[in-house]
Amino acid sequence: MSIRDWPDGERPREKLLARGAGVLSDAELLAVFLGSGRRGLSAVDLARNLLADAGGLKPLLDAPRAQAGIGAVAWCRLAAALETGRRYLDAELRRGEALTDPSASARYLKARLAGYPYEVFACLFLDNRHRVIVFEELFRGSIDGASVHPREVVRRCLVHNAAAVIFAHNHPSGIAEPSAADRAITQRLREALELVDVRLLDHFVVGQGTPTSLAQRGWL
Rank of each mutant, 00 (worst) to 15 (best):
R183N: 00
P7C: 03
V44E: 15
S213Y: 02
L214T: 03
V73H: 11
C123D: 03
R94L: 13
E83L: 14
P59Q: 06
G115P: 00
E177N: 05
R107Y: 12
E83M: 14
D127E: 07
M1P: 04
R129S: 08
P102K: 10
L193M: 10
K110E: 08
L193C: 12
R39S: 13
G218N: 08
S105A: 15
R11S: 06
L109W: 06
E137C: 09
D26M: 03
R183T: 02
G35D: 11
R39E: 14
G141V: 07
A114I: 11
R107E: 14
E92I: 05
A114Q: 14
V120S: 04
A81R: 10
G96A: 05
D101Q: 12
L89W: 10
G71T: 04
E119Y: 07
V44F: 14
R87P: 01
R19P: 00
A98S: 15
A184L: 13
R11H: 09
A162R: 12
L189T: 01
R107M: 14
I175L: 11
R94V: 00
T212G: 08
D101W: 02
L214N: 01
D62T: 00
L24G: 02
R11V: 06
V32F: 10
P172L: 01
A114L: 11
L93G: 04
E137P: 04
P178Y: 10
G40C: 03
C157L: 13
C76L: 14
P59C: 03
Q187P: 00
R87G: 00
R140P: 00
V132K: 12
G207K: 02
G218L: 05
V32I: 15
V154Q: 11
G85I: 00
L41M: 14
L16T: 03
L109C: 11
W219M: 10
A52I: 00
W6S: 02
S142G: 09
P117T: 04
R112K: 15
A98M: 05
L220K: 02
L16F: 14
F125I: 02
D182M: 05
L89V: 01
L193W: 08
R156P: 00
D8N: 08
F204C: 03
G9S: 12
A162D: 01
A192Y: 05
R19L: 13
L82V: 14
L124P: 01
Y116P: 00
V148F: 09
V73G: 00
S36K: 15
G20F: 10
R217Y: 10
V134G: 05
L109M: 15
H149S: 09
A31D: 03
